[in-house]
């Protein structure tokens, strides 16, 4: 079994900040916009070194999306930065019309997604954003799993032509993806090979899935862990080839059970290869204040939840 030692503890948003800064150096057409959250989004370095290509729009997210769309007309590659809730739900129609329908090359970069932002509570903890963004025609949806991968993904979307939603988070989290591991948009990564159950995960829960696989191994269950960092377009080949081997599926995401990674995979399976599946996801509720660890536990997104879901789904084969 592959093992993934913890290389560091870093927040994924810092991976975004580092990637954006790198892009600024590489591509003079990259511009960035922020809505009064420069520090939270770790955009300080970009702002400092490329002040002419950085736009502070104030607390006005709808305006930010429109300006970003306009900047593409003239060849700029805009990256917007605010919290996930204000990047999606708050500005849905602005994204839908001015970015998605108009086909503009905007990169919507969203921090503090999911429960793990912690104490700010439900108003800020969006659990519906993957669904909202997946539903927009043409939108690429990426949810990287650690600092290194978020940095890689940020750089990758800069070179990718088309609208992208990049989702990351607030807490310090284990860094376990080696910095030189190749990252390709739309290509899922088999992190651990196994034959008894396929565990598909995205974002922070990839680390939890790796832990769960170790627990399962102790009881003789060989879990395959697949990092689905790109939820749309989904790597259906990777999904099907794993499921052919294992015959059952657990999906893990820091998102409502409706509309996210689990549903994306269920759709592929239902239409090609109906397979027992268990969801590790938030059970159709809002979040609340608490620490990241407390909330993952309370809302059923922790290692034991993945272990139990795996045990349940294996029985359903």
């Amino acid at each position: 079994m592959n093992s993934f030692p913890i290389l560091d503890q870093k927040d994924t948003r810092s991976g975004f900040g580092a990637g954006l800064h790198e892009l600024g150096k590489q591509n003079p057409n990259v511009v960035a916009l922020c809505a009064d959250l420069i520090g939270s989004l770790k955009m300080d370095a970009f702002k400092k070194d490329f002040p002419d290509r950085f736009f502070q729009v104030g607390i006005a997210e709808a305006n930010m999306m429109g300006i970003a769309a306009g900047l593409t007309i003239g060849g700029k590659v805009p990256f917007t930065g605010t919290f996930a809730n204000f990047s999606t739900g708050r500005v849905y129609d602005q994204i839908r019309q001015s970015i998605a329908y108009a086909g503009k090359n905007v990169k919507i970069c969203a921090s503090h997604a999911g429960l793990t932002l912690g104490e700010d509570g439900a108003t800020h903890q969006i659990l519906e954003d993957i669904g909202l963004m997946r539903m927009l025609p043409g939108m690429t949806v990426i949810v990287p799993c650690d600092y290194n991968q978020t940095k890689q993904a940020t750089i990758a979307i800069g070179a990718h032509e088309g609208l992208v939603y990049l989702r990351f988070g607030r807490p310090k989290w284990p860094v376990f993806i080696p910095a030189d591991m190749p990252f390709e948009i739309g290509k899922a990564q088999v992190l651990i090979e196994g034959s008894d159950v396929s565990i598909f995960a995205c974002g922070h829960l990839v680390w939890k899935a790796l832990q769960a696989a170790e627990e399962l191994a102790k009881t003789g269950i060989k879990a395959e862990v697949i990092n689905v960092h790109t939820i749309k377009p989904l790597d259906t080949k990777a999904v099907l080839s794993s499921v052919k081997k294992t015959g059952c599926v657990v999906t893990c995401e820091e998102h409502n059970k409706y509309g996210g990674l689990g549903d994306a995979i269920a759709q592929v399976l239902a239409t090609t290869m109906p397979t027992p599946q268990e969801y590790v996801a938030v059970n159709d509720s809002f979040g609340e204040s608490g620490t990241a660890d407390q909330l993952l536990k309370k809302y059923g997104l922790d290692v034991p939840d993945i272990v139990q879901a795996s045990q349940r789904v294996i029985k359903r084969k």
């Binding site: 509570g121 439900a122 108003t123 800020h124 609340e288 204040s289 608490g290 620490t291 309370k298």
Partner: peptide, 13 residues
């Protein structure tokens, strides 16, 4: 305030 299970959520609700 702001602790798990509180009525005093981070933002009023």
């Amino acid at each position: 305030f702001r602790k798990l299970d509180t009525r005093l959520q981070g933002h009023p609700t």
